[in-house]
Design a binder for these strands. Sequence first.
DNA 1: ACGCCTATGTAAGAACCTCTCACTTTGAGG
DNA 2: CCTCAAAGTGAGAGGTTCTTACATAGGCGT
Lengths: 197, 197
Amino acid sequence: MAGRNTYHHGDLRNALLRATRELVKERGARGFSVSEAARRAGVSISAPYRHFADRDAMLAATAQLAFTELETQFAALVLEEPLPECAARIAVAYVAFARQDPARFEVMFASGIDKASHPELLEQTRRVQERLEAALQPHVPREEVVGRAAELWAIAHGVASLALGGNLHHVVDSSRIDRVAASAAHAWARGVSTSGV
Amino acid sequence: MAGRNTYHHGDLRNALLRATRELVKERGARGFSVSEAARRAGVSISAPYRHFADRDAMLAATAQLAFTELETQFAALVLEEPLPECAARIAVAYVAFARQDPARFEVMFASGIDKASHPELLEQTRRVQERLEAALQPHVPREEVVGRAAELWAIAHGVASLALGGNLHHVVDSSRIDRVAASAAHAWARGVSTSGV
DNA sequence: ACGCCTATGTAAGAACCTCTCACTTTGAGG
DNA sequence: CCTCAAAGTGAGAGGTTCTTACATAGGCGT
């Protein structure tokens, strides 16, 4: 597979996506280069351009796979408890997703690709939002669902981003980041439930 | 100043920092290049290396200035209301800071510089955290302050990051992002206050 | 007033990078 | 079997970061 003997690779697109992910894991999104990915796939430097428009398109395609993985992890959640527990579970799952492969999360949100020029990514952020809306729908008034879903996403995303950016290092040791996420989401949800009082 | 006639520039370091910020504003953190900054300051490509170790050091120095600006904006906040309003004010201020100059925020949190190798940045993230702790200290039990401050930061940071990343475009039109921040922080704070019940 | 030292600038170049273009190879369908 | 289009190649233009050796001049002590 990797060491091919035919002129045509046969599965170059996928090989490049794998190499991209590996590279981002090793060197961060900025350290990723089309050349190095090509080298690892065992093809010439210009070969990748047969499959991707440019460097950003390679990162975008990788991000797209990552978004699909996030969807899968969300789909596995069972959310039958009251709102606070439910929100906490979602936040913890999101943070776990980020921490279990920081490179993947980096590609999705911090690789500098412009979502506006990659509509498939826009579409997938919309799906994330919709998944959260579906989860909240049983617990909050119809007209609040959209906004509340965005708030919950922000809470989870904020914890994940700050943690991966190393901004919480002095504050909470990394084993307790899940607790921050859970605690924030839980408090938020209690506040949401209280709003009608 | 810009077009100098002496061999020595006289204020190159500052000129470069200004150019850096300009460039990031125009082209994003990834579009920034040492060469172009040098060109704009009217010096040779190698001149910047007399003042900064490398490209990252230029971004880090720019980020440091930005953190100081954030501190200043926080210092201007008057926080004498009950927790929910107080938290909402902080979150809104943070998001406003991010939105009023997205490039600045990008340099601080999404330019790919490794905070661990720039201790002055670590120090400044610690100051942000401390400022939040001070704001919460009157409202929450001593042993919770650190964790709660991190949670509030995460909420504000999450809204700012998602919004600037274009992830909320379909959801909330940009004029209402402040309301998302306020609403999230407010709910969270109500939940925090309720925790003793 | 003079000269030296060190700060700060320059020029050139090595080693990477992205992306394009004209060319080659080869597998699959008519 | 023949051809054509998809997929891979090699060379090269133009960009980048960073280093090294050299040039300049401002400010210091004498």
